[in-house]
């Protein structure tokens, strides 16, 4: 099977093209899958996370994967972030400190994931953020990872990748799972019949949670949303057929004709944000419980 991949940006079209790739390869077993990238003029590096997740699923179904005709500019970026190492390329050094490595984690790899974030965020020299912002950003990423592990119950791992755009003062980071989507969880656990994009909106509102059992939940995505609004950043969530985006304080939702086999959370943060993220009013520890 040969598939031509088009340009992949972090937008509805880009996600749509990746979903098409997942749909086209969904029935492939014991096959040779060639991804022809002659028409792929650009890939936003963070989109390696959803692309890698789809390719991993193809490989899991015992297919061989070959990426062909990779354009030099795409090859340059995807060799630096380690993505192409999975498909026969050698690693190139990132001299600009603008990549956050592409990685796949097992759901139990939370400590390994934490090491990765600490190394990539601090050890790698990126990005130039205020200490308050850096703490909020790291914690937001941990919230997304935990959320994926807890809610998706994925067996296929968690995929992540990021890119720092120095001139724009923006940092994009994607976390992807191939587990149970938000809409299915909302339906199965809360009995609500919602469209996929409505289900994402539901999960980000008020005290809504699909959690059951002895450990409460339901804060992770709300904290993320609050932070991104304050930071003037962007969140994009793709889960099954749903697309949900928060940008410049506005929420936009759309549906995809085919489902993504899991959930993608992409955040873009404004690294020039100099807010301290310190609380205005003091909280006393005696008032907590």
């Amino acid at each position: 099977m040969k598939i031509f991949l088009q340009e992949i940006n972090s937008d509805y079209e880009g996600f749509s093209r990746l979903i098409q790739l997942a749909a086209q390869t969904a029935g492939c077993y014991f096959d040779d899958v060639e991804i022809d990238m002659s028409q792929t003029g650009w890939i936003d590096a963070n989109m390696c996370a959803p692309l890698g997740a789809i390719l991993y699923k193809i490989g899991r179904d015992i297919n061989s994967i070959q990426l062909t005709h990779v354009q030099p500019n795409v090859e340059a970026i995807l060799s630096k972030n380690g993505f192409l190492c999975n498909y026969g390329w050698s690693r190139k050094k990132d001299t600009h400190g603008s990549t956050i490595e592409y990685k796949r984690f097992e759901p139990k790899d939370d400590r390994y994931f934490a090491d990765y974030i600490e190394t990539q965020m601090i050890g790698n020299g990126i990005p130039e953020m205020s200490p308050g912002l850096l703490k909020k950003f790291r914690e937001s990423i941990y919230e997304i990872f935990s959320n994926s592990v807890i809610h998706s119950r994925t067996m296929l791992g968690i995929f992540s990748c990021g890119q720092y755009f120095h001139k724009k003062h923006r940092l994009d980071f994607s976390v992807v799972d191939l587990g149970i989507g938000i809409c299915t969880n909302v339906h199965d656990r809360r009995g609500l019949v919602l469209s996929a994009e409505e289900a994402i909106s539901w999960a980000l509102e008020g005290k809504n949670t699909t959690k059951l059992g002895p450990i409460p939940g339901g804060l992770g995505l709300k904290l993320l949303r609050e932070f991104i609004i304050e930071n003037d950043g962007r969140i994009q969530i793709v889960s099954e057929n749903g697309y949900w985006e928060l940008s410049e304080g506005q929420v936009n939702t759309r549906a995809f004709p085919e489902p993504f086999p899991g959930t993608i959370v992409n955040i873009e943060i404004n690294t020039a944000d100099s807010k301290s993220y310190r609380l205005v009013s003091e909280i006393r520890s005696e008032d907590i419980f």
Binding site: R138, Y142, S146, I150, P214, I215, P216, G217, G220
Partner: peptide, 19 residues
């Protein structure tokens, strides 16, 4: 402690309210 998440605190402390 440098970084905390709601997932950690829910498991550590939040679930006490169920018991």
């Amino acid at each position: 402690v440098e970084s905390l998440t709601s997932a950690f605190l829910n498991a550590a402390i939040g679930q006490l309210y169920g018991e």
